[in-house]
């Protein structure tokens, strides 16, 4: 009996995650225009990795602001998969946006040379943060706002680098689960190889998201949807037939990564502390 309950819940999640694509596209285009323009900008810049998430942000930005107002930064490291660069170049060519190639190898290798014992995780975080430095600097040079490329799955799982690839001014795709990123990417005509290749942060050779996480995006999106959007309790999903270890692990990761989704905490001393009781919208006066 529990197996059929699980089947029903999976079907429910699948239906809910199935996007109304034209409507989603319209809201996100308008979102980018609105939030970029009201801060006095007409242009946006983003790091284009060759992966599906940044490709989607680039397609949305080009559709919203016009290709002439979007700059894509290609920021390879010497160990980066060459396919990443050629996939990013395919996006640039397809959209007719401008691009700038900045090798980050000299920037990071001089630092790596100082700390020979760094593991791949530390090195990966340095790469992500070096790319953030370039993004924010180029955003000034291009008189533009930096666009985000983190999706909801990765934000919930904390599968990203704080102050690295998570850094942006405006993120159009942060409320789309990974499986929804794929749907919208197909709808917008993103080149098939980018949609179909196994997702990877490409921070070290052979890295794969699903290998590292230990589950498929489709499975985790269903569980995340039920836990987060529908507020099922983990015990309810387990009772319905979802695998206990999987559900508990997902719930634990979402909780333990909460710090990445919040600004740094501030020791409260005064009557009115920033964020706690000094509360203003970001679009204050816009």
């Amino acid at each position: 009996m529990s197996a059929s309950v699980k089947t029903d819940l999976v079907a429910k999640a699948r239906n809910a995650l199935d996007l109304n694509l034209p409507l989603t596209e319209r809201i996100l285009h308008s979102f980018i225009r609105n939030e970029v323009h009201k801060f006095g900008f007409t242009r946006a810049v983003l790091n284009l990795s060759g992966g599906i998430d940044s490709a989607l942000s680039a397609y949305l930005a080009a559709g919203a602001l016009g290709p002439e107002n979007v700059l894509a930064l290609l920021l390879p490291y010497r160990e980066s998969n060459p396919d990443s660069r050629s996939d990013a170049e395919a996006v640039v060519a397809a959209l007719g946006i401008s691009s700038k190639l900045v090798e980050i190898t000299p920037l990071v290798d001089s630092y790596f040379a100082e700390f020979a014992d760094m593991d791949v995780k530390r090195r990966g975080n340095v790469l992500a943060r070096a790319r953030m430095i370039v993004l924010y600097d180029q955003s000034v040079a291009f008189d533009s706002l930096p666009l985000g490329t983190s999706n909801k799955t990765e934000l919930l799982l904390g599968y990203s680098t704080l102050h690295g690839d998570m850094a942006s001014a405006v993120n159009p795709i942060g409320d789309l689960y990974k499986t929804q990123v794929r749907q919208l990417s197909r709808h917008l005509g993103i080149p098939q190889p980018i949609i179909e290749k196994p997702p990877s942060a490409d921070l070290w050779p052979g890295q794969s998201d699903e290998g590292e996480l230990g589950f498929s995006y489709e499975d985790v999106d269903h569980v995340l949807y039920l836990l987060v959007d529908e507020r099922y309790r983990p015990e309810e999903l387990i009772a319905a037939g979802f695998e206990r270890d999987f559900v508990e692990r997902v719930a634990r990761v979402v909780q333990s990564m909460q710090y990445k989704r919040r600004p740094p905490i501030i020791a409260k001393l005064s009557q009115r502390t920033i964020e706690r009781d000094f509360r203003y919208p970001r679009d204050w006066g816009r």
Binding site: A16, D18, L19, N20, L21, L23, T24, I27
Partner: peptide
């Protein structure tokens, strides 16, 4: 506020 963009419906 607009929310709910599921493919099952035409509108939000």
């Amino acid at each position: 506020p607009g929310r709910g963009v599921s493919g099952e419906s035409q509108d939000l």
